[in-house]
Design a protein around this nucleic acid. Structure first.
Length: 226
DNA sequence: AAGTTAGTCAACCGCGGGCGT
DNA sequence: AACGCCCGCGGTTGACTAACT
């Protein structure tokens, strides 16, 4: 952290929370609930800012949090929701009970790092070119079974940025109608290469059929390499 | 064994929106 | 309408640790 909050009268503690601080915050919330964060540090006897208290509670102390690695279903859901919602971490996390936006964001950043890394590896290693998605998952603990379907750029289908939200809604509604699961290909990942793009699917015909279905709904879909 | 690199987790910061005055 | 306060979100980065050389 290169930037420091300026102008604070009292020097607030920063960095990792101690067990004693956690206990103070837990006790405070058990007693008063989790409202009015700005007053929490004062009442709870913590030398932290209210925002820090709120973050600690939301990301770590909440009793309903589900700790540990993401399940395969959760990973798939994140990937799916991100294709629709973009970096709306709080909205994505809202669909994952017990998970925080921070967790989802961290997962996604790791996921993207893996994907980029393995794309580069694949480019440099022709022997991997036939199964890019699968090979991209072998390094991490993640085991992504789903091809990564990327919706056509939402911004590109609107006249300006103001329509992005409506466009996202449109995609979401259309995907619901299309029954997303019909386009989740299980098993291996043969690819159809065309004009620099990869289309993942059980076969070219399957990918073409899926693409046609999306086209019929007015979706500018790119079956995306990852 | 020691040093380096990479990956993950946790926390901070700035910004924008909602709300009350 | 303007202002200030508070909260929540998304981006970023420091701390820690495991893996690698």
């Amino acid at each position: 952290m290169s930037k420091r909050p300026g102008g604070t009268k009292k020097r607030l503690k920063r960095g990792l929370w101690s067990p004693e601080e956690d206990e103070k915050l837990m006790n405070h919330i058990a007693k008063y609930g989790n409202g009015c964060w700005s007053s929490v540090p004062k009442i709870a006897g913590l030398e932290r800012c209210g925002k820090s208290c709120r973050l600690r509670w939301i990301n770590y102390l909440r009793p309903d949090l589900k700790r540990g690695a993401f399940s395969q279903e959760e990973e798939d859901l994140i990937i799916h929701l991100h294709s629709i919602l973009g970096n709306k971490w709080s909205q994505i996390a809202a669909q994952l009970p017990g998970r925080t936006d921070n967790e989802v964001k961290n997962f996604w950043n790791s996921f993207i790092t893996d994907e980029l890394c393995c794309n580069n590896n694949n480019k440099n290693n022709p022997s991997n070119s036939g199964s890019g998605f699968e090979s991209s998952t072998t390094q991490s603990s993640s085991n992504h079974h789903l091809p990564w379907l990327e919706l056509g750029s939402i911004s590109s289908c609107t006249e300006d940025g103001a329509g992005a939200g409506a466009a996202a809604d449109h995609y979401g509604a259309a995907l619901d109608e299309l029954k997303w699961s019909d386009y989740v290909f299980d098993g291996g990942y043969p690819q159809y290469h065309q004009q620099g793009q990869c289309i993942y699917g059980d076969s070219k015909a399957a990918a073409d059929a899926a693409t046609a279905q999306f086209d019929a709904h007015g979706l500018g879909i790119n079956w995306c390499l990852n």
